[in-house]
């Protein structure tokens, strides 16, 4: 399987990475090289094999329904949350105007 320039452009758009023509030209053969190489996985008969779900046998732990139990995962820290924002105003994050 190989990807065309148009497909790469579409993937880049889906991944929200703007790409100039020259960059796309460079990327297409690189991606095709990688995709050709991973193609060999198709050789493996995986009938009846379950895809891996947990790397190490372990079960999903659930936490108790307690607000702000641990400050690391608590709310009520707006200043911290906004501290690194490129545009923060009146307690909000600012983004270019969105028309829905």
């Amino acid at each position: 399987m190989s990807v065309t320039r148009e497909e790469v452009a579409k993937i880049a758009s889906l991944a929200r990475i703007r790409m100039a023509d020259a960059e796309l030209d460079r990327m297409v053969p690189e991606l095709n090289g990688i995709l050709d190489w991973v193609e060999q996985l198709g050789e493996v008969d995986t009938a009846g094999v379950e895809p891996m779900t947990a790397v190490i046998p372990n079960t999903l732990r659930l936490r108790d329904d307690v607000v702000d139990a641990d400050p690391h995962t608590a709310g009520g820290r707006r200043d911290d949350v906004l501290a690194n924002a490129p545009a923060a105003e009146h307690g909000f994050f600012g983004v270019p105007k969105v028309i829905e």
């Binding site: 607000v67 702000d68 690391h72 608590a74 709310g75 707006r78 906004l82 307690g91």
Partner: peptide, 20 residues
């Protein structure tokens, strides 16, 4: 995350580092 679900709070006051 541990942030509260209460309705009507000031903007971004019920946001944990996880939610952000």
């Amino acid at each position: 995350s541990g942030a509260s679900t209460a309705f009507g709070a000031e903007p971004n006051t019920q946001v944990s580092l996880v939610d952000a």
